[in-house]
Design a protein around this nucleic acid. Structure first.
Lengths: 163, 163
DNA sequence: AAGATAAGTTGCGAATCGCTACTTACTTGC
DNA sequence: GCAAGTAAGTAGCGATTCGCAACTTATCTT
């Protein structure tokens, strides 16, 4: 029951990054999420796999459930067992997690991680997470502009440009 | 000069996610990074924009510099001024940051953030960050498998499949 | 009923956060 | 040159959180 007395991260310029960090920005949150993606669903599984302290784990799981990232269900056949499963909202964090992991592989460890995430169709590793334009072109940092809403082109009269 | 007395996050199954979080997993790190992407480069700019305590900011900036994510340079024309700029390694976190921000927009705030990141070519907003196969196909969670290295197809004899 | 197991909770010392005030090094205006 | 201002960072201190270990509660198993 962690009352949130700490001031929420400031909404600098209406960015939703602070909101995302409010839910996922604490230590262990992303690792718990990664474990959940890897078919771990129970308290003791998380605990032994991550080596996290039990009270911290309990706190994080509660928070993730509160934020709708995990779902908490008591198993019918053994009511001691609680199952934590990713919600759609939690599953939607996959690209973020992969991007962070790929960055770590490239710039920190230098080695490919185990297990590897592969395309089920051909069992080849997935490609790098990249920023792309609306039409799928890969964009580099130089091709990106931070723009105010009024300067953004909306969905009108760009059919020619896209074609 | 924060000595890291806290045990590093366990390397669960050789994943590089803990390594990435070691560098970026602390409170404020991603917000400082976002500010750096938005052309903020000085201590006072970060401080007033984020409302972060000065000692914490100093600590985070040092850590980000230590990890090679930011570069620290004293300005020649005013040697009081220190410029913090993204390194290539830091800039490589853009997809991660965008993915996290997009997730926040979709699942937390529900609104498009300001400023918007647009394609410089047509000023249209960028597309969503997605997991893709080696050939660019968008992959859903169901099409992904966590696989051991020995079960991964490498770059041989898949020219037919790709074509 | 006795023992094992799953999921927490509690207590407590250590580390970190956040606020405010202070310091240090430079630059500017007179 | 000297007072005032500015940029970056440090110090002190109370409040919060982390992390370890032991304990509790509810539920199976035998």
């Amino acid at each position: 029951m962690g009352g949130k007395l700490r001031e929420p991260l400031r909404d600098l310029a209406e960015c939703s990054l602070p909101a995302a960090l409010e839910a996922m920005g604490e230590r262990w949150s992303f690792l718990i999420l990664r474990a959940a993606f890897n078919e771990l669903h129970h308290f003791e599984e998380f605990q032994s796999e991550l080596g996290i302290a039990r009270n911290i784990l309990a706190n994080r799981l509660s928070r993730l459930v509160e934020h709708g990232i995990l779902m908490r269900t008591a198993m019918p056949e053994d009511r001691r067992k609680i199952e934590y499963r990713l919600t759609d909202k939690g599953a939607a964090l996959l690209p973020t997690m992969i991007a962070l992991r790929q960055w770590g592989e490239r710039w920190e460890t230098g080695i490919a991680a185990t297990p590897v995430l592969v395309d089920a169709r051909d069992r080849r590793p997935i490609g790098p997470i990249e920023v792309r334009a609306h039409d799928g072109r890969v964009l580099t940092k130089q091709e990106l502009i931070w723009s105010l809403p009024e300067d953004v082109a909306d969905d009108a009269a760009e059919v020619r440009a896209a074609e």
